[in-house]
Design a protein around this nucleic acid. Structure first.
Length: 213
DNA sequence: CTTGTCGCTACAGAACCTTG
DNA sequence: CAAGGTTCTGTAGCGACAAG
């Protein structure tokens, strides 16, 4: 796995690289200290498996920079790791194609869980971004929205199903425990996948682990 | 203010497809 | 064949809104 780390702080790049080495032992790393260096690395010919980068680096042109990177490395997930937790930055990054947003203020445990989720194809967003976006949405079902704020956009039922998934239970076991039909469990599982931005129950379990970190 | 309607969302079951 | 996952259809609760 080839990973590009773009950040103007050498210390942070070093720390992130060590963290990534724990997750992806066989990974090779390329580092960039400015946005121009990120572009140079993208143009250099090699294709990265994932690009992790800070916002507001030297030469940072704004969110269009994300588009430039994607144009040079089509299909490669670009994850923003930023000191900013401003909703505008989070939305801007996602609107411009970022596949995740990890605040630098996250604990190592959360950071590892988030990176694990991203490596497995999921999308990580800080909890604040999710609750804020829910606050901005029309409140048609106040009680349910309140419930959802406690669980990363999941309903109470979905959180129950996710907890069972986390414990490695099959759909049948979940159905028996929650008093549902197997088909209904599958519906909830599919909805959980969509909410978490994952493709299967393994990734959902990783996401659940990241949540509880 | 009350009532009826509409739209949205959560929840549920069943059938079907895919994969190992 | 079993388990996982998707799609379709239906029901119910709630908020928004217009009409009386």
């Amino acid at each position: 796995m080839k990973i590009l780390i773009g950040d103007d702080h050498l210390l942070f790049r070093e720390g992130l690289r060590r963290l990534l080495e724990q997750l992806q032992g066989d990974a090779s790393f390329v580092e960039a200290g400015t946005f121009d260096e990120v572009l140079d690395q993208c143009r250099a010919g090699s294709t990265f498996d994932i690009i992790l980068m800070d916002l507001h680096m030297p030469n940072w042109p704004g969110f269009d920079g994300l588009r430039e990177i994607q144009a040079l490395q089509p299909g490669v997930p670009v994850v923003v790791i930023s000191a900013s937790e401003a909703l505008g930055d989070i939305r801007g990054a996602l609107d411009h194609g970022a596949t995740g947003y990890i605040p630098k203020s996250s604990s190592v445990k959360v950071m590892m869980g988030a990176l694990n989720l991203v490596f497995s194809g999921g999308i990580y967003l800080p909890p604040g971004a999710l609750t804020a976006s829910m606050d901005a949405a029309p409140r048609r079902r106040t009680m349910e929205v309140a419930d959802r704020s406690a669980g990363y956009g999941l309903t109470q039922r979905q959180r129950e199903v996710l907890e069972c998934l986390r414990l490695g239970k099959s759909n049948k076991q979940i159905a028996y425990e929650l008093g549902l039909s197997e088909g209904t469990v599958k519906i909830h599982v599919t909805a959980i996948f969509k909410s978490l931005g994952v493709k299967n129950r393994t990734q959902a379990v990783i996401a659940a682990a990241a949540m509880s970190a």
